[in-house]
Design a protein around this nucleic acid. Structure first.
Lengths: 238, 238
DNA sequence: CGCACCTTTGAAAGGTTTCAACTTCTGTGG
DNA sequence: CCACAGAAGTTGAAACCTTTCAAAGGTGCG
């Protein structure tokens, strides 16, 4: 289940994304490369971390997608946030923190333990920005679920993913890979898979997006963003 | 608008709550008392902090209720979280952090700047636990909005508030003050005020709760919690 | 080629919203 | 202490969005 890997390509997405959150010095890059050297692989549907279990160390998702989810006793599932390549999760100021949600791989993934805090000031700043982003994404998710209809939820989530993937350097010409099934999307959006399917068709017919295979192309993200009242994410002054 | 106050009673709720998150030593208590001495009052509907503005210092809500909210361009409002007496908000590891939501007083409130981090190890631990709680509440809010129906949302929120108020020593015999209008609840629950009203009546008829004036009494919180699959909040091991 | 998984479709039921009016509270001023 | 105004709570009927259930197409991979 845990396969140590030696692929130096692995960490590049994480480095790319983190360096856009805060400038990384040579020291930070070295720490990241070292961490990536002991990455391991998980298959889709495997759990990276289960709710209530203790968080040994922050994780970096080097490759692939994952989801933080909560399950209700009757089986209903809510994805509270999606993790895309380069994301860091599990950073806490608490000694012996416990996970408040289950993290499950949505695709085959490669993960590694993140360098601990305190080892690099540049990295610590990147972690702080990353955490602030994560909180902003949670607030955005709440607003989506509470006050948007199905069409708005879908487009708003895709725009968020676009922005996030852009930070990792994974967007080209408004198109990007989204390896989510409609069922997974429905768990993230608080909808049924059937309804996601119908609204996605409506969005395609309206010319808002093209979705072929795993790749999405947004026709006019700027316009869509304006219509939804999305504003650029800023978490610190200056 | 800002009235310095000299009421030594003020900080007691905050002390009480924080000390249940982590044991406070004499030093921490002194810092809290000092901070509470320069509290100020705001009327209901006034903003404590507006979205996008910079967070000068963490805030302690000494008294009264507030809400963190996001407003959509067409006026729809989503309350992302409620702040109850004793809550701390705005703790960040970021230099010059910006607020990602507007904080508005729901009742007349007294707030003060929290002692800065680094001044007391005990207090820092309390802040860390408080932050972990806040994150768990956001996840709970997401699950409520995404996967619960109106009745479940209402009861689940009330149970969460009960637990939180309990930490501040504000629950007696399963009853506690909830100074929320049905409209405010609807903004927190992603529903219309009309529907909140109807579902509240249903809950009363079903004997699940009594709500007179501003005071709520839950008939059988343990049973309700079980039915909703709520589990005790734990954010750290040991 | 066949099984598993994902997407698509239809029709009916259901939960929630909308709109508009009415009633009950609560606090303030006469 | 009562009258009044504004805020909050309540009610009804119809429209609307989303879900449910069930089944039929696609697609990819061993």
């Amino acid at each position: 289940m845990i396969n140590a890997r030696r692929n130096s390509e692995e960490g590049s997405t994480a480095r790319s994304r983190l360096s856009r959150l805060a400038p990384l010095d040579a020291d930070a890059v070295r720490l990241l490369e070292e961490a990536a050297r002991t990455s391991y692989a998980l298959r889709a549907r495997q759990e990276l971390l289960s709710a209530g279990s203790s968080i040994e160390a922050p994780l970096i998702l080097l490759d692939g997608w994952a989801a933080r989810a909560r399950i209700l006793p009757d089986g209903r599932r809510q994805i509270v946030s999606l993790l895309v390549p380069g994301d860091v999760t599990g950073v806490s100021d608490l000694p012996e923190p416990l996970s408040s949600a289950t993290i499950v791989a949505l695709t085959p993934v490669h993960v590694c333990a993140a360098p601990p805090r305190g080892a690099s000031a540049a990295l610590d700043l990147a972690y702080a920005v990353s955490r602030a982003h994560d909180e902003a994404f949670l607030l955005a998710q709440i607003t989506r679920l509470g006050r948007m209809n199905a069409q708005e939820r879908i487009m708003d989530l895709l725009l968020e993913l676009r922005d996030r993937l852009d930070l990792a350097g994974l967007v080209r010409d408004n198109s990007f890979d989204v390896p989510l099934t409609q069922e997974t999307m429905s768990d993230a959006l608080g909808l049924t898979p059937v309804h996601v399917n119908r609204m996605l068709q409506a969005a395609r017919k309206a010319g808002d997006l093209v979705w072929t295979g795993k790749r999405i192309t947004l026709s006019d993200p700027a316009r869509s963003a304006r219509e939804l009242g999305r504003v650029p994410l800023r978490v610190r002054a200056g």
